[in-house]
Amino acid sequence: MAEAVGGGRGKVFRVESGVVRRAKIWRAEVVLRVLEVALCLVSISVMAADKTSGWAGDYFDRYQEYRYCFSVNVISFAYSTLQVFSHIHYMIWKRHVISIPLSYSFDFLLDQVLAYLLMSASSSAAARIDDWTSMFGSDMFTNMLIGSIAASFAAFLAFAISSIISAFKLFSLNP
């Protein structure tokens, strides 16, 4: 990738090496993985803590859509945590946990699958919230669920960007 430096006729072109590009991609991937862990953990925590007391005490576990969203976030959290540990392992020992070609395919496949599952689960839960608030109004139970679903949608965005990076790694950096 060439980049123009300076102005006018005396432009100097600087070429970014493949090593620099890989380092930038690797850093972006690590940041996204940590973000995925954090967002999934927030979504799980808020949804699990969402209980109301009183005669109409509600709990997310009563509703299929919320259980689906919770389960997909748990799976996504586990996968992202393993990815973070894999990156830490590489930083310490300079060895990959899984061989490179297989790792790129594995990352691409799971990033795609989990991104679609997060979008599906978040959309399903959001539709249920919309029905609930249109019939009964908003309360603390629905507000906490909205926060959890928002974190789940944000996790989807992080997974979508990670899947773009993993696709780039699979199709262009694969030796």
Rank of each mutant, 00 (worst) to 15 (best):
K11N: 07
V74M: 08
V12Y: 06
A115F: 07
E3N: 05
F106Q: 09
D107F: 09
G57H: 06
D130Q: 11
L110S: 04
G57T: 06
A167T: 08
L170G: 01
G57L: 04
K169A: 09
S162P: 00
S71R: 10
I129G: 03
E29S: 11
R95F: 01
F70M: 12
P175Y: 10
L109N: 00
E36Q: 14
A167R: 04
L41M: 02
S122L: 05
C40G: 07
Y116W: 14
F70Y: 14
I129E: 13
D130T: 10
D58S: 03
L41E: 03
G18Q: 02
S162Y: 04
F136V: 06
L35Y: 05
S105I: 11
F159K: 08
Y79A: 09
S80Q: 04
F60K: 01
A48E: 01
I44W: 00
S103A: 15
E29K: 07
F13I: 07
F153N: 09
R62T: 05
G7A: 12
D50W: 02
G7T: 14
M119I: 03
L173Y: 13
W55M: 06
V42D: 01
R128S: 13
S138K: 14
G18P: 00
Y59K: 00
V42L: 11
I146K: 00
M135A: 14
W132L: 14
S134G: 09
K94N: 08
V46N: 03
V72A: 08
I146M: 10
D50T: 08
S162D: 10
S71Y: 15
L173G: 00
K51L: 01
L118R: 13
F70R: 01
Y68W: 12
S148G: 15
I25Q: 04
D107N: 11
L35W: 01
A56P: 01
D58M: 05
L109R: 11
V74T: 05
R33E: 05
F153I: 12
R95A: 08
A151T: 05
A78G: 07
L117D: 03
E16D: 05
L35D: 02
I25A: 07
V15R: 06
R14E: 06
V19L: 02
V46R: 00
I92N: 08
I161N: 10
W132F: 15
A115P: 04
S43G: 14
S71E: 05
V37K: 06
R62Q: 14
F85D: 00
S105D: 01
R62M: 08
I129T: 05
D130Y: 11
V72Y: 06
F153H: 09
A78I: 14
T142P: 02
L35S: 12
G18W: 03
L157D: 07
A167D: 08
T133Q: 09
E36C: 09
M47L: 06
W93M: 10
A28C: 13
S166W: 08
W93N: 05
S138D: 05
I88L: 15
I98D: 13
K169I: 11
I164E: 06
A23G: 00
D58Y: 00
A150Y: 10
D58I: 08
L173W: 13
Y63W: 14
G54I: 02
Q64M: 11
F13V: 08
S138T: 11
S99F: 09
F70V: 02
M119T: 04
C69A: 14
A126Q: 10
G6R: 02
S120A: 13
A167M: 07
S71T: 12
I92L: 14
V31P: 03
